[in-house]
Write a protein that binds this DNA or RNA. Structure first.
Lengths: 201, 201
DNA sequence: TCCTTTCCTAAGCGCCCGCTTAGCATGAGG
DNA sequence: CCTCATGCTAAGCGGGCGCTTAGGAAAGGA
């Protein structure tokens, strides 16, 4: 599952540390995770962590930054192609929701642990988040312009769309009855209705 | 604002401790909050906390339990009155969302810190959560029966409705452009559309 | 007046935290 | 064969953590 995450992180040991960290951060939170937990789970002594990362927060930042960049790429890619706003929104929600279900471990860290980042790293991440929100908002505006969507307020609508996806990371577990893809499709239907989609699905 | 919370907590000092705790838990998380932080913010020495609560987790439990009970009362009250499912759902979402915005500090602790509870207390809280979800699900089922709602899956729909409200606690701040009540009304419209409401609003 | 209860503090115990230091093994380059 | 960079470990430092202990101040009742 996580074998394909961060395929280009240089020493394999650093990748093992990131995997161990993301597991623990997602399970009990950043502050409840100790550097000894992470190092032990990665099969090393506590000191080995500092060979690859300058601090525990640097590890969190690497995880958070790459997760946000991956999400931004996904959203921008699907929001800016050609096709009707309806089709693009359906594809976007399907992928966004499916990612938060399939990668709910990483997603939990990405969405709920960013407050633990120091100021400057926090600003980098919130910058990426603003661009994600902006992409969704622009797509909604496009749909309103073509008459496919009808919403009281575009910014609130964008928030609601993202909320539905983000919150999946909070409750989804491996033993859910639905696959990530199936959940994504179902949520896409709900979202299109929510946006007042006029081309009945 | 929080003067009216927990009006019947016995010694006033215990209430001050709960207020200080909820502020810090919401701001930086349970694990990043120290008992010294809480006691100092409540105007006492670190040891005074243990006069009123047996442990830091007991404080969290009191906050979490009362918050969940308040939410359950709100949801059950509005879901089981007489009136059409549409009217009841609108009222429920308005109140649920407005509560998560107005009391976003308490709500943040209620919704995002329950993993820090020990096993037995965790079970008490998840029991309350199950009843909250069940109330929403029952209301959706009622609406499907009358033909007012039309959803692919009732359980997923209930999850989505609650997700929208819960996630408000994550992003809402005092300097938001919308009041809690206005946000609630807007979200209620979005939710009714999402549920395939046939009596156009 | 003295006793009891209530609410609080000063001090500190034992533990574990993030991180550092000093040094050791391995293997490629010359 | 020696050199040196790389990746690691054993040991531990300073400090902050949750929580305990022992006792004091204040107030009300007998």
């Amino acid at each position: 599952m996580t074998m394909s995450l961060w395929p280009d992180v240089k020493p394999e040991a650093a990748r093992r540390l990131m995997h161990a960290a993301v597991q623990s951060f997602a399970a009990v939170g950043f502050h409840a995770t100790t550097t000894r937990d992470i190092a032990t789970a990665a099969g090393m002594s506590p000191a080995a962590l500092y060979v690859h990362f300058p601090s525990k927060t640097a590890l969190l930042f690497e995880i958070s930054r790459s997760g946000h960049e991956q999400t931004l790429a996904l959203v921008q890619d699907l929001a800016t192609g050609d096709g009707t706003p309806t089709d693009k929104m359906r594809a976007l929600v399907e992928s966004f929701v499916a990612w938060h279900a399939r990668e709910h471990t990483v997603a939990r860290v990405v969405q709920y642990e960013l407050d633990a980042l120091p100021e400057s790293e926090y600003l980098v991440v919130t910058g990426l988040r603003r661009r994600i929100e902006q992409a969704v908002r622009t797509l909604i505006a496009e749909g309103v312009r073509t008459g496919e969507f009808q919403v009281p307020d575009e910014k609130t609508a964008a928030r609601a769309v993202l909320s539905l996806g983000i919150d999946v990371a909070r409750w989804y577990t491996e033993r859910a009855r639905k696959t990530p893809r199936a959940l994504g499709r179902e949520y896409a239907t709900l979202v299109l209705r929510m946006l007042g989609n006029s081309t009945i699905d």
